[in-house]
Design a binder for these strands. Structure first.
Lengths: 208, 208
DNA sequence: TTGTCAATTGTCAGCGACTGACACTAGCCT
DNA sequence: AGGCTAGTGTCAGTCGCTGACAATTGACAA
């Protein structure tokens, strides 16, 4: 069961997280100091660093949940699906579960604002891309095992995942730049971009 | 013509760059302080920051040259080549020019060591990926213009470049992990991985 | 209930990246 | 030779982050 101490800890952590995201998305990440966040929750700066390893980590706390969820989503795909098809389905179907899980931590609207802040803040974008590399490595190993190939000698798992990740990045970027942040918008965009992959790679663009 | 003042500046800059890379590659990036770099060249810390915007920038000074060279390499490709073919040729032929240009700044061997340090240092890998995004955006616009499509309405330029970038990242990673850092090794690896793209995306891996 | 133990927190001191302000030095140009 | 200016060093200060130590507060048994 959950003791009072645990409840207090959870409360502090959630308060720090919410305060941080709120400040980041309104004033900007760089213009927000750790002292400000700590002060907003009325704890010392030192305590902040006991809950989050750094200013960056709190910015990705929610993002982290969605990444884990995507990995699980891929793992749960039926074995008969081809690799790229499994990734596609995982992403298209994963969005709802993601929405639910996010809401349990912070308002979805705050998460979306934070997502855009990440995309538009160089330091955060860099961290986001590096985190993606880690996730992609996980998924590459997952696919390799699933298909029965060796990830260290067969480059195809990493290639497929890298390509898929690239398409997702372009999709996310476009989604952030637009003005429809609904669930259906991102799904449409994802499907559309994945469908145009072949044409982008092999086609003669001038023909169209 | 080049005045004495200019010569001194160039000398200081090159000395700082060499000292920084030398220290980064031997002691590690995180374990090297800006004070150390400045001291090695016998200038004040403040002066270091007048030549480089930050500790990170000096780490990418050479990398920056190679990126610019790659962009030019793509721009110089004949108009009849299909987009992906142009990228492929640019990268395969670009390596020699890169080697020459690098040598004019620092020993190629030092550059290669620095490259591996970047790949293995989280903070530098993150910065590297973000820089790649910038380069990719430049190339996407280049390809779009070249093919006569609008980069803001047609996703294919960004998709193609993102996919190509993804393959290159996997290639670089593999190259760094191996033990043959010669020119021919990276060229072979690049060509091989690009050739396996189709198989990675559409094939049934279990068949092979 | 009370006292002990352990977890949590605040305070303080300090490092490293980075910046602005100001004074000083050294190359440039007449 | 002497004034002008670009380049440099020094100093002080901010911000992210960490270790050490003391104070507090919840947990649990006597």
């Amino acid at each position: 069961m959950e003791t009072l101490r645990d409840r207090k800890k959870r409360h502090t952590r959630e308060a720090l997280l919410r305060a941080a995201l709120e400040l980041f998305t309104t004033q900007g990440y760089e213009h927000t100091t750790v002292d400000e966040i700590a002060e907003a929750v009325d704890v010392s700066q030192r305590t902040f660093f006991r809950y989050f390893a750094g200013k960056e980590e709190v910015a990705f706390a929610v993002q982290e949940m969605t990444e884990a969820l995507f990995v699980e989503s891929v793992r749960a795909r039926p074995a008969h699906e081809a690799p790229m098809e499994a990734l596609r389905q995982a992403v298209l179907e994963g969005w709802e579960a993601i929405q639910e899980t996010v809401e349990s931590a912070v308002p979805v609207e705050l998460y979306l604002r934070m997502y855009r802040t990440i995309e538009s803040t160089p330091a955060l974008l860099a961290a986001h891309l590096r985190r993606s590399v880690t996730t992609e490595e996980t998924i590459a190993r997952l696919l390799a095992e699933r298909e029965g190939v060796d990830v260290d000698t067969d480059p195809r798992p990493r290639l497929a995942v890298a390509v898929f990740g690239g398409v997702m990045r372009v999709t996310e970027r476009q989604w952030c730049a637009g003005d429809d942040f609904g669930l259906e918008a991102i799904r449409r965009l994802t499907a559309s971009y994945l469908d145009q992959l072949g044409s982008a790679l092999t086609g003669n663009w001038r023909a169209g």
